[in-house]
């Protein structure tokens, strides 16, 4: 497990956290190199499609960060985002994603230290969980030979059993 280096897609708002990442860089604060940064105009821009897309393409974790409430460049973008993120996080977990895979933070452009600190925590938390298990698109060359038929599902009736067990 100690060998595992997680890949983390990091979506940062242009006005605050991206600035913080810059500041952390010029200030030579150490943080792990596992994060891949995507810059967006505002955390309100982030769509659930992007999160799922990150998992499809092999991300082990996702971290989204924007301005502190009240500091949004667009005045209210992050307030709207906050409601969306809460539903998104809970819905992802409802679908089976582990709580430590997806992270949110507010980091202003003056908080280079906080950026490095959260980056370390996010990477560590995903490292603990190990490689992503869910929402990964399968390898394309490993298609079934005949591809002629619906294959029987190994999980068949699992759902029914679980619900029945609970009812009992």
């Amino acid at each position: 497990m100690s060998e595992f280096e997680p890949k983390i897609i990091t979506i940062l708002c242009n006005w605050c956290t991206y600035g913080a990442a810059d500041l952390a860089g010029v200030s030579r604060f150490q943080y792990p190199p596992n994060i891949r940064v995507i810059r967006v105009p505002c955390s309100g821009r982030v769509s659930p499609k992007m999160i799922l897309s990150a998992f499809h393409n092999g991300a082990d974790g996702v971290w989204i960060s924007g301005c502190h409430p009240g500091d949004c460049h667009y005045i209210t973008g992050n307030y709207y985002a906050r409601r969306k993120f809460m539903l998104l996080k809970n819905f992802l977990e409802y679908n089976g994603i582990e709580p430590g895979r997806i992270h949110f933070s507010w980091i202003s452009s003056a908080e280079g230290v906080k950026f490095a600190e959260v980056a370390r925590d996010v990477v560590e938390s995903v490292r603990q969980l190990g490689p992503a298990k869910y929402f990964i698109k399968k390898e394309l060359d490993d298609n079934d030979l005949c591809s002629c038929l619906n294959k029987s599902n190994p999980d068949n009736n699992l759902a029914k059993n679980i619900l029945e067990e609970q009812a009992a």
């Binding site: 409802y94 679908n95 089976g96 582990e98 759902a159 679980i162």
Partner: peptide
């Protein structure tokens, strides 16, 4: 009921469904 399941069970539950 689904919230009460373990994470991996929830994942397989919906896969199955």
């Amino acid at each position: 009921k689904i919230e009460a399941m373990a994470e991996s069970d929830r994942w397989s539950f919906f896969n199955d469904m």
